[in-house]
Simulated scan of single mutants.
Amino acid sequence: MRFERVSIPATDPDALSDWYGRTLGVEATGDGVDLGETTLRFEPATESAPQHLALRTPADSDALTAWLAERATIHPVEGAQSRRFDFLDADAVYVADGAGNVLECLCYDGDAAEPLAGGVPIAGVTEVGLPAPDVLALVEWLESAVGLSAWGSPSESFAWVGDRQARFVVLPAGSEWYPTEQVADSEPISATVVDSDATPGTYEHPELQYEITVGKP
């Protein structure tokens, strides 16, 4: 799966676009930013709970950590500035973006490390959080209505829908975004994905403010 576009709410879209531009060195597009193969849009909102996004960052994890430590607030994991995920073959660095969203930068072992010359190299968005009152019910909708597939074994407390390249992170509303105490809650989120097994079209969840568009591969 691949994310072409992701939209999340923001109380100050211009300020948030500016944060991504200044901190990551990416190009702002008026109401959002270009993050590799993904366009991230910020939709105006009067208020918004913190969201979770993960970016695939082909950079050396130590160099990335040093870069972010000078420009953002890093969320430590058990006292460390990064976390190793052996099952992903990746190192993760978590930071708070300009609106307090939990931003995860994932450095995969198989990616050739690019230099951080004026900005952070970004391949695209690789995770989008979708809090839900009922995790398994949202997974079922993503599978049966949208045509996506769960990755791994979904549970009532956590599920991935997508694949190793890109996925939705489904967790209970009211729980906390790892590794912070930020409370996850459902907000209006839309995304355009490309998945060869899903049928192109736009799908609106009947209860939650989630809209998923499946584009053509």
Rank of each mutant, 00 (worst) to 15 (best):
R84I: 07
L68M: 13
A66S: 15
D86K: 11
L55A: 04
P76R: 02
D62H: 11
E78S: 13
R83W: 14
H52D: 10
A45T: 04
R56Y: 01
G79Y: 04
D34Y: 00
Q81L: 14
D86H: 10
T73S: 14
A54C: 13
R71H: 09
G79M: 07
P76N: 02
I74V: 10
P58L: 02
F85H: 12
L35Q: 06
D86Y: 03
A63S: 05
A69H: 12
G32I: 05
F87G: 00
P76T: 01
L53I: 05
A72F: 01
R22C: 01
Y20L: 10
A59Y: 03
L53E: 04
L35D: 11
V26W: 05
A28S: 14
G32M: 02
T29K: 12
S61A: 13
R41S: 11
D89V: 05
L40K: 07
L24F: 15
D89P: 06
E47F: 03
D60N: 15
L53C: 08
L35N: 06
A69N: 09
W67A: 02
A69R: 15
P44L: 06
G36V: 10
Q81E: 14
A28K: 15
G36N: 02
A80M: 12
Q51D: 01
D60T: 08
H52R: 15
V77T: 10
F87E: 14
A63L: 09
F85W: 13
P76I: 00
S82V: 07
V33Q: 13
R83D: 14
H75M: 05
F42C: 05
F42I: 03
D89K: 14
L64M: 04
L55N: 02
A90Q: 10
S82D: 01
S48P: 00
R83I: 12
F42G: 00
E43C: 09
V33L: 11
A63C: 01
R56P: 08
P76V: 01
D89Y: 10
G21K: 07
P44A: 11
P50G: 04
A72K: 12
A54Q: 08
R83V: 14
A63N: 02
R83T: 11
P58N: 03
W67M: 04
A72P: 12
G32K: 06
S61L: 06
P50T: 08
T23V: 15
A80R: 11
T39P: 00
V77H: 11
L88A: 09
Q51R: 12
A66T: 15
T23G: 06
V33R: 02
L35I: 12
G32T: 09
S48D: 09
T39R: 08
A63D: 12
D34I: 13
R71M: 08
V77R: 05
H52T: 06
G25N: 00
G32C: 06
L64Q: 04
E27D: 05
S48A: 15
A49H: 15
S82G: 11
H75R: 10
D31V: 12
I74E: 00
D34E: 13
D31C: 11
V26M: 09
G30I: 05
V33Y: 03
L53H: 02
T39S: 01
R41E: 14
L68G: 07
R84W: 07
L64E: 01
A72H: 09
E70D: 13
S82P: 10
F42E: 10
E27P: 00
A66F: 12
F85I: 05
